[in-house]
Amino acid sequence: MSIQHFRVALIPFFAAFCLPVFAHPETLVKVKDAEDQLGARVGYIELDLNSGKILESFRPEERFPMMSTFKVLLCGAVLSRVDAGQEQLGRRIHYSQNDLVEYSPVTEKHLTDGMTVRELCSAAITMSDNTAANLLLTTIGGPKELTAFLHNMGDHVTRLDRWEPELNEAIPNDERDTTMPAAMATTLRKLLTGELLTLASRQQLIDWMEADKVAGPLLRSALPAGWFIADKSGAGERGSRGIIAALGPDGKPSRIVVIYTTGSQATMDERNRQIAEIGASLIKHW
Results as ranks from 00 to 15, higher is better:
Ser2Arg: 09
Ser2Glu: 05
Gln4Trp: 08
Val8His: 14
Val8Asn: 14
Ala9His: 12
Phe14Leu: 09
Ala15Glu: 04
Ala15Gln: 08
Leu19Ser: 15
Leu19Phe: 15
Val21Arg: 06
His24Leu: 10
Val31Ser: 03
Lys32Glu: 10
Glu35Asn: 03
Glu35Lys: 03
Asp36His: 10
Leu38Ser: 08
Gly39Gln: 11
Gly43Phe: 01
Tyr44Arg: 00
Ile54Asn: 06
Arg59Phe: 03
Glu61Phe: 10
Glu61Leu: 12
Glu61Ile: 10
Met66Asn: 02
Met67Asn: 13
Lys71Pro: 00
Leu73Asp: 04
Leu74Cys: 05
Cys75Gln: 01
Gly76Pro: 00
Ala77Thr: 10
Val78Ala: 06
Arg81Asn: 12
Asp83Ser: 06
Ala84His: 12
Gly85Leu: 08
Gln86His: 13
Gly90Trp: 11
Arg91Ile: 04
Arg91Phe: 06
Ile93Val: 14
Asp99Thr: 09
Leu100Trp: 05
Glu102Ser: 11
Pro105Asp: 04
Glu108Leu: 09
Leu111Asn: 06
Arg118Trp: 15
Glu119Leu: 03
Cys121Lys: 00
Met127Cys: 09
Asn130Gly: 05
Asn134Asp: 05
Leu136Thr: 04
Leu146Phe: 11
Thr147Asp: 09
Phe149Thr: 08
Phe149Met: 11
Leu150Asp: 01
Asn152His: 15
Met153Ala: 13
Met153Thr: 12
Asp155Tyr: 01
Val157Gln: 14
Thr158Met: 03
Leu160Glu: 02
Glu166Asp: 14
Glu166Met: 14
Leu167Gly: 05
Leu167Asn: 07
Asn168Gln: 07
Ala170Leu: 08
Arg176Ala: 08
Arg176Cys: 09
Thr178Leu: 02
Thr179Pro: 00
Ala183Glu: 11
Thr186Pro: 08
Leu188Phe: 13
Lys190Arg: 14
Leu191His: 05
Gly194Tyr: 08
Leu197Ala: 04
Thr198Ala: 11
Arg202Thr: 15
Gln203Glu: 15
Gln204Gly: 05
Ile206Ala: 14
Glu210Arg: 10
Glu210Gly: 10
Ala211Gln: 14
Pro217Lys: 14
Pro217Trp: 05
Leu219Gly: 03
Leu223Val: 13
Leu223Gly: 03
Pro224Tyr: 04
Gly226Lys: 10
Phe228Val: 07
Phe228Ile: 08
Asp231Asn: 05
Asp231Glu: 04
Ser233Trp: 02
Gly239Cys: 03
Gly239Trp: 01
Ser240Leu: 02
Ile244Lys: 00
Ile244Leu: 09
Ile244His: 01
Leu247Ile: 11
Gly248Glu: 01
Ile256Pro: 00
Ile256Lys: 00
Val257Trp: 02
Val258Phe: 02
Thr262Ile: 09
Gln265Ile: 13
Thr267Pro: 14
Met268Lys: 06
Glu270Gln: 12
